[in-house]
Design a protein around this nucleic acid. Structure first.
Length: 434
RNA sequence: GUGCCUAUAGUUUAAUGGUAAAACUCCAGUUUGUGGUACUGGUAUCGAGGGUUCGAUUCCCUCUAGGCACCCCA
C-alpha cells in the first residue's frame, strides 16, 4: 500500500528572516562588489568569523544591560551545555578573533572588513529584521590616533557614495572616556532630576537608568528641556576634546561635511570618544521615511581592553545593507548594469536535441553566453523565451541543419537570419556578440 | 517585549453567511520549422488551529506572519 504523502503546511521563513530571491540578487551583487572595491581601495583585508560565538563575547562587551544583550540575542545551548549565540553584530567577534589569533602580528594597526548576516531577536519592522546583513570596516590596534577615526568615516562614506546614496548626512559626536563621561552623566542627571515631574514617562525612567538616552527623546514636550541641557562637549576632558578636534579637522581636510550632533549617543557600552552615524534624507520625499541610520560606528578602545589586547585602540563602522538597498531602490539611479549580449540556442527534433548538448558546451567553453530551454520542444515556445530573456540572437538547430552540419543564426532585433556551417558557428557568434 | 492595524492565486487587488472575481506574471495551445501583438484554456483546500452556525473565506478566540508606534537599533 502506497503511503500517503503528507503535505507540510504553513511553510514560511522564520519571523523577521527573509529569502533573498533571484530578482533581488542584482542589488546584493552590486553591494557586495562595492564593499569589496572600497575595502581593496583602502587596503582592508577580509575576515569572516563564525555565525555563532560563545555568549561571553557579546554579553561582556556590549554591556550587560544593553538591549541587545538583555533581550535581543538568539541563544543556543550546545550538547555540552555551552551557551552559544547567533552574532548580533560584527565588531566584538572580530576583536575576539584578533586576540585569539594574535593578529597584531600582521602589523599594527590592522585594517579589516567583513560582510555577513547578523541576528537580533527584535520585533520586525520596515528596515529592521531578525536576520540582516552588515558590512563593516575596522582599524584595530596601534595608537588611538584620530586619523584612523577619519579613515573609517572616509571608507564608509566612500562605500555609500559608490552605492549612489544621495543626501547623506554625517552626524558625529564624542561620548568621552572613563574619566569625563561619568562627570557628564552626573551633570545631566543633576540638571534633569528637578525637572522629572515635567518630563514624559520614558524620560522619567531614563533619568534613573540611562541618562544619556535623555538626549534621544523625540517627545515634543521634552524638547525645551533638552535644548537647555548641558552638552557633553563642555564636559570632555582635555584628551577627548583634542581627539574630537583632530577628527573634525581631518574630516574638513577630506572635504567631508558633518554635523556635530550633541544628542548623538550610541547604544553599545564599548564605545568611547568618537561616535558617528550616517543618515539619508532622500527617503523623506515619498516612499518610506527612514529615521534611522544606514551606517554607524565609533571608537571602541574599551572593547580591546576588556578582551585583553595590549594595544587598546580600535575604531570601526558598520553599514546596514538591507537599509542601503532599500534606499537605493527608492532613488531612480538604478543599478546601471550593462547587459551582456547573449545567444539563445533552439533545437527542433530529437536528433538536433541530442546534438545540442555538445554544441552548447562548445559555445560555452568558448566563452559565449548561451541560454537554452532544452526541455521545451516547440519552436514557438523557444523563440518566445529567447525574446523574453532579451537574447540578441537565436541559434536555430533543426533536423535539416543537423543533417547538413549547419545552423541558423537569427538576429532577434531585426529578424534577419543566415545559415552558417557548424564549423564556423563559434566564430560567427562571437563576432556578432562583441 | 507592549499597543494599534492587516492577512484572499506567484504579484497587486475585488466580492460574498451557502466553497471565490479581475489584472499582470507563469504554463499549454491557436493544424504540423520562426518570437515580441491578438485569441483560448490552465493554476487559490481564501495564513494555521479552534469556536458560533444547518453551513464560514466572510462572525468570535488563539497562534503565526506583515506593517506602524514605543523600546532599541544597521
Amino acid at each position: 500500500m502506497a503511503k500517503k504523502i503528507q503535505k507540510i503546511k504553513n511553510l514560511r521563513s522564520p519571523r523577521g528572516m527573509h529569502d533573498i530571491l533571484p530578482q533581488e540578487q542584482d542589488w546584493w551583487d552590486k553591494v557586495r562588489k562595492e564593499v569589496d572595491n572600497v575595502a581593496n581601495y583602502y587596503n582592508f583585508s577580509r575576515i569572516d568569523t563564525p555565525l555563532l560565538e560563545y555568549s561571553d563575547v557579546f554579553e561582556k562587551s556590549l554591556g550587560e544591560t544593553s538591549d541587545i544583550v538583555e533581550k535581543q540575542m538568539f541563544v543556543l545551548r550546545s550538547g555540552s551545555g555551552d551557551r552559544l549565540v547567533l552574532r548580533p553584530e560584527g565588531t566584538a567577534a572580530i576583536v575576539r578573533a584578533y586576540i585569539q589569533h594574535g593578529l597584531s602580528h600582521l602589523g599594527q594597526p590592522l585594517k579589516l572588513f567583513y560582510l555577513g548576516p547578523m541576528f537580533r531577536k527584535e520585533r520586525p519592522q520596515a528596515g529592521r529584521f531578525r536576520q540582516f546583513h552588515q558590512a563593516g570596516f575596522e582599524i584595530i590596534g596601534g595608537q588611538d590616533d584620530p586619523i584612523y577615526d577619519a579613515q573609517i568615516i572616509l571608507a564608509t562614506f566612500k562605500l555609500l557614495e559608490r552605492l549612489k546614496i544621495r543626501n547623506l548626512s554625517l552626524h558625529i559626536n564624542s561620548i568621552g572616556c572613563r574619566v569625563c563621561r561619568p562627570n557628564y552623566r552626573k551633570k545631566l542627571t543633576e540638571y534633569y532630576k528637578p525637572l522629572s515631574a515635567k518630563l514624559c514617562k520614558d524620560c522619567r525612567r531614563r533619568v534613573k537608568q540611562n541618562p544619556l538616552r535623555l538626549l534621544d527623546c523625540k517627545e515634543e514636550s521634552c524638547q525645551p528641556y533638552k535644548a537647555e541641557a548641558p552638552i557633553i562637549l563642555d564636559s570632555l576632558c582635555v584628551n577627548c576634546n583634542r581627539h574630537l578636534k583632530h577628527v573634525l579637522e581631518f574630516l574638513e581636510e577630506l572635504g567631508l561635511s558633518y554635523k556635530l550632533d550633541n544628542y548623538l549617543v550610541r547604544g553599545l557600552d564599548y564605545y568611547n570618544k568618537t561616535v558617528f552615524e550616517f543618515f539619508t534624507e532622500s527617503a523623506d520625499q515619498g516612499g518610506k521615511a527612514f529615521d534611522f541610520a544606514i551606517a554607524s560606528g565609533g571608537r571602541y578602545d574599551y572593547l580591546m581592553d576588556m578582551f585583553g589586547a595590549r594595544q587598546s585602540a580600535a575604531v570601526g563602522s558598520a553599514v546596514g545593507l538591507e537599509r542601503v538597498i532599500e534606499v537605493m531602490k527608492g532613488t531612480d539611479v538604478g543599478l546601471g548594469l550593462r547587459k551582456k549580449p547573449k545567444a539563445f540556442f533552439i533545437h527542433i527534433g530529437d536528433l538536433a536535441k541530442k546534438r545540442s548538448l555538445t554544441l552548447i558546451e562548445e559555445l560555452r567553453s568558448a566563452g559565449v553566453a548561451v541560454l537554452e530551454s532544452l526541455g521545451k520542444d516547440s519552436l514557438a515556445a523557444q523563440l518566445r523565451l529567447a525574446n523574453k530573456t532579451g537574447s540578441d540572437y537565436a541559434l536555430i538547430f533543426g533536423q535539416k541543419e543537423a543533417f547538413e552540419d549547419s545552423i541558423i543564426i537569427r538576429d532577434l532585433k531585426n529578424s534577419v537570419q543566415e545559415t552558417v556551417p557548424l564549423k564556423k558557428l563559434v566564430n560567427e557568434v562571437k563576432k556578432r556578440l562583441r
